[in-house]
Amino acid sequence: MTILTDHERAFQIFQKQLIESDYLKEVRFKTYAGLPFLYVLPNPENPREVIENEIKRAAAKGMKGKSLTLTMSFVRKNQAEYVYRIRFLVPQRKMFCCGNLCDDCIRFTNP
């Protein structure tokens, strides 16, 4: 049994939601230089805004209950296919006290 991180679980849910979407004909994921890209072939009647909203909805379902944020950027339109760079980011936490009396100082958190 493999234990998945929140990030991996969120990406699996995201993929499943997109594959099952009624707005999209085909969905493919490819990784180049360590970055995930999403190739979307939409149903012809759906404009780009609808597609992007569907991607964001699927991402929100994947991120639900997890401390992640979505970074999505449009790369290009390839004939009828849209290409997006998609990343789920884990928020950074301070690991040391910098001495600037910050509100979120590591000294004020419980380990």
Rank of each mutant, 00 (worst) to 15 (best):
M95E: 10
V50I: 15
Y84H: 05
L70M: 07
L89S: 13
G34D: 05
R85S: 03
L35R: 13
S73K: 15
G34P: 06
D104C: 01
F88D: 03
A80S: 12
R93S: 10
I55D: 00
C105D: 03
Q79T: 13
L38N: 04
A60D: 15
C102L: 07
R107C: 09
S67K: 11
E52I: 14
G65W: 08
R107S: 12
S73E: 15
T71I: 13
L101H: 13
P47E: 13
F88M: 07
C98I: 13
I86R: 01
A60F: 14
S67G: 02
M63Y: 01
D103Y: 12
P44G: 11
D103H: 14
C102F: 07
K64W: 05
C97N: 09
I51E: 02
L101F: 10
Y39V: 03
V83K: 11
S67P: 04
L101A: 14
G65A: 05
F88C: 03
G62I: 10
E49W: 01
P36H: 08
I51W: 00
L41A: 09
R87I: 12
M95K: 11
N43S: 12
F88A: 06
E54A: 13
K66G: 01
R48V: 14
K66H: 06
F37P: 00
A33L: 03
Y39W: 08
V50L: 08
Y39L: 12
P44Y: 02
K61S: 11
M95H: 05
G62P: 06
A33I: 09
L35V: 14
V50F: 00
E45W: 03
T69R: 09
L101M: 06
P44V: 02
R87C: 01
M63R: 11
L41S: 12
P44M: 04
T69S: 11
P47C: 03
R93V: 09
S73A: 07
T69D: 04
M63H: 01
E49G: 00
A59E: 09
V83G: 00
N53E: 14
R76W: 00
M95C: 02
K77F: 00
A58K: 08
R87P: 00
I106M: 06
V90Q: 14
L101S: 11
Q92E: 11
L70W: 03
C105K: 09
Q79A: 14
L70C: 01
S73I: 15
I55N: 00
T71G: 04
Q92R: 12
L35Q: 12
T31L: 01
R85E: 11
M95N: 04
Q92K: 13
E45M: 02
P42T: 04
S67A: 13
V50K: 10
L35C: 03
V40Y: 03
N78K: 12
D103M: 08
R85A: 07
N43R: 15
Q79R: 15
